[in-house]
Nucleic acid binder design. Structure first.
Lengths: 220, 220
DNA sequence: TGAAAAGTCAAGGTATTCCTAATAATTATA
DNA sequence: TATAATTATTAGGAATACCTTGACTTTTCA
């Protein structure tokens, strides 16, 4: 199994484990766009390599070793995103794919020096936390925007689906970028569509989108 | 042919073409450490892809397209070296291998932004020229240290074999890094060994090593 | 408990990249 | 210029990696 593919599986499993654990082979197959049978086979191999704990029909779970590798990749990915965004001046909408490539060719030394250079940032341009050198797992904070009630004032903390350039462009256009403060003007009881006010402008945000935006309510 | 392997062949051929063109399959095979037969086959494929001009028994030569890709790789490689050395504070002895990996996953956008960020440097930490955005080929300037005569004052311009960590460490230890000024104290007529004075210290430099150091004589 | 859903297994396909051994072309040398 | 030595190519195939399909098994849940 090539390093690259191994890492792609670890990322897929690791990400999925954040919402359900263990992860079903079906979930992995869907997220990677390959057949169920392939996943069965590959997951077994990852298990042979000690990166995944796998029981037939029981789903997969990263081992400590697999999890460390997953977290290290996340760390590298997000460090690169910060570099690309802050220093190379590439928009937050566009840093994902380059970081995706860079993370796989980052040595321990470069990771360490890059983190120092960036002054050990604790979150990426999408607001997601950057694991530390200790590789302890980190969790995204906050609640989904969709759960806010009418009248609530809140701050955008982070955004899920950071690979979706269109989505991020849309968020930029409605002013919902990490750090932005907004108020829920109205929440439709019919379909959950929200009307928000940010930057003095009023905008509609669909329920789907609102699920992917993590926020922190602000008490007045 | 995978992108990665394609690029490795382009680099090998491009580098070898700097000393002789066309390049024999034997030379490629030796530089890459693989069999002659494999090279024959791969060179033909590169030729099918329009990256190499290849006539059986006549050696290989990069096409314009192949040359552009080779120069672009060189540019990316050396830009990363500057970044790693100047900004991440990684020694000039050690930047090569990381740059080697990074160069293959660098998008046009990142290349451009990185060059701007670095203020369009014109040479890498080993003193080798960085091709410009126009991808015109560039040549290393200067003459080999080994060709200097006794008494000559000179400046180190660049170093060949930048992948040889041990060699670079040795150069650092004798003070022969790019920019250093030194004088040839003696040149052995027997085996070409040189005695030089740099930084107030006297050191011996073997003929082999002296071949790999490019210098510029200074008139007094 | 039995149908639907989820998962595994077996077998095989394709692509990639390398190798060895045999052959052919070229070059050097006497 | 004939022959040896060198250099290069071709044929054939091995190893690996990753994926697929289709048959079968296990689990889930109405």
């Amino acid at each position: 199994m090539s390093q690259r593919i191994t890492e792609e599986y670890l990322e897929s499993i690791g990400t999925l484990e954040e919402s359900e654990s263990p992860v079903s082979t079906t979930a992995i197959a869907q997220s990677m766009g390959i057949s169920l049978a392939s996943v069965s086979e590959m997951v077994r191999r990852l298990s042979d390599k000690g990166l995944v704990e796998y029981t037939p029909y029981g789903g997969a779970r990263l081992t400590d070793e697999g999890n460390k590798r997953y977290i290290r990749l996340t760390r590298r990915h997000r460090l690169w995103e910060v570099f690309l965004n802050k220093h190379l001046d590439i928009g937050w909408e566009d840093v994902y794919s380059d970081a995706c490539a860079l993370e796989h060719v980052t040595s321990d030394l470069v990771e360490e020096k890059l983190a120092e250079f960036l002054d050990n940032p604790d979150s990426c341009p999408h607001g997601n936390p950057i694991p530390g050198k200790d590789l302890k797992s980190v969790k995204t904070k906050g609640m989904a925007l969709s759960r806010l009630e009418t009248g609530q004032l809140a701050r955008v903390l982070s955004v899920v689906n950071e690979y979706n350039v269109e989505f991020l462009r849309y968020l930029t256009s409605v002013g919902l970028t990490p750090g932005a403060i907004f108020r829920v003007i109205e929440k439709s009881s019919y379909d959950g569509t929200l009307t928000i006010e940010a930057d003095g402008m009023t905008r509609a945000v669909g329920k789907e989108a609102a699920t992917l935006i993590m926020v922190e309510p602000i008490n007045e």
